[in-house]
Design a protein around this nucleic acid. Structure first.
Lengths: 159, 159
DNA sequence: TTACGTGCAAATAATTTGCAGTCCC
DNA sequence: GGGACTGCAAATTATTTGCACGTAA
C-alpha cells in the first residue's frame, strides 16, 4: 500500500519512476520470473545486472557482495544464482575445472576461455558460424550448442 | 616385411609378436609418452584403450579396474588419467556438473551430451563444420575449440 | 498471518596432496 | 641402487542441504 498524493496519475507516474530506477526495474524482472523480490535477490541482482554483461563464479559474486557490505551468505548466493538460472535470467557455463560460471547474458552466444587466467569472454553470436548441426542420436533432439574457444597468450614474436 | 625363420631374426620375430600383443604395444605407447610402463599404467591403459573410443570419468574407470580385480587406488586413477592427458593419450572434457570426462580419442572432435543421462557421444570431426573462427582477443592465440551439443530425449510425436 | 526465503554450519562430491613403501631401469 | 611411481587417508575445493528464524504479500 502506497499513498500517492495524486491518485489518478499515480500509476503512470510511478511507472516512469520505476523504469528510471534500476532497483525497481529489477523488482519487475524478478516478478516476471515469479521470484519474490527479497532484499538479497535485489542486492545480488544489482551486482549481477548493474554493470553490463559479466561472467561470475559463485565465489566471485559472494566476494563482491561482501565488499559492497551486502549481507548475504554463500549458500544464498548459490541458491540465488540457480534460481536466476532456472528463471532464464542467467546462463550457467561449465568450463575446465570444477567451477561453474554464470553469465548475465542468457541469450545464445559462445565464449573464449583464456587458459592462463580462466577468464571467460563473450563471442558475439554473429562472430561464429556453425555449419549445419549433425543429426542428433536417435530419439534425441538438440537442446543447445555450447562452443568454447580456448585461447592462450600468444608467444609474442620479436621478443 | 618380417617373416624370417632363421635364428638371427629373433629380434624381428619378437617385434612382430609384440605388435600383435596389446600389452606390448601399450608399453611402447607409454615409452613414447615418457611414462614408465608400470603395472598400474598398463592395467589402466588396457581398460582405456582396449575397447575402442570411450568417455570415462575417473570414478567409472576406478570401478572397471575394481571389477577387473586390478589393484589400483582411486588416487592413482586420477594421477594416471592426468598423466595420460598431459602426454596426449587422452583428452579431458568438461561438461555440466563437477565431473571431468576423459576421452580415449585425443584427436580434435566434438560431442553430444545427453542431458538425462550425462552420457557423451562422439561427433565425427566431419559432421560438424565451424565457420571461420572469430578473432581471438588481443595478444592471444587459439589453442582449441570445444563444441558440446546438448541433446535431450525428444518428445515423441503421435504417441 | 503464512508460506516462501535466508543464514548458518554440517554434509556431500570430486579431486588433490604428503609421505612411506614399492618397483622399473 | 636410485629415483620415479603408488597407495592410503587426510586435505582442499566447490557445492548442496536441513532447519530455525525472518520477511514479503
Amino acid at each position: 500500500m502506497s499513498a500517492p498524493a495524486v491518485p489518478l496519475a499515480s500509476t503512470a507516474r510511478r511507472a516512469a519512476a520505476m523504469s528510471a530506477c534500476p532497483v525497481h526495474s529489477l523488482r519487475g524482472k524478478l516478478r516476471q520470473a515469479r521470484l519474490r523480490p527479497t532484499r538479497q535477490r535485489i542486492a545480488l541482482g544489482w551486482l549481477l545486472f548493474g554493470r553490463g554483461n559479466r561472467h561470475l563464479t559463485a565465489e566471485m559474486l559472494f566476494e563482491e557482495a561482501r565488499a559492497a557490505k551486502l549481507p548475504v551468505s554463500l549458500a544464498t548466493v548459490y541458491n540465488t544464482l540457480h534460481q536466476f538460472t532456472a528463471a532464464g535470467l542467467l546462463r550457467e557455463i561449465a568450463v575446465e575445472g570444477a567451477r561453474a560460471y554464470f553469465d548475465t547474458n542468457p541469450t545464445p552466444h559462445h565464449h573464449f576461455l583464456v587458459e592462463e587466467t580462466g577468464a571467460l569472454l563473450d563471442i558475439s553470436d554473429r562472430d561464429i558460424a556453425l555449419g549445419p548441426l549433425p543429426l542428433p542420436p536417435p530419439g534425441c533432439e538438440i537442446a543447445g550448442v555450447d562452443v568454447v574457444v580456448r585461447v592462450r597468450r600468444a608467444a609474442q614474436k620479436g621478443g
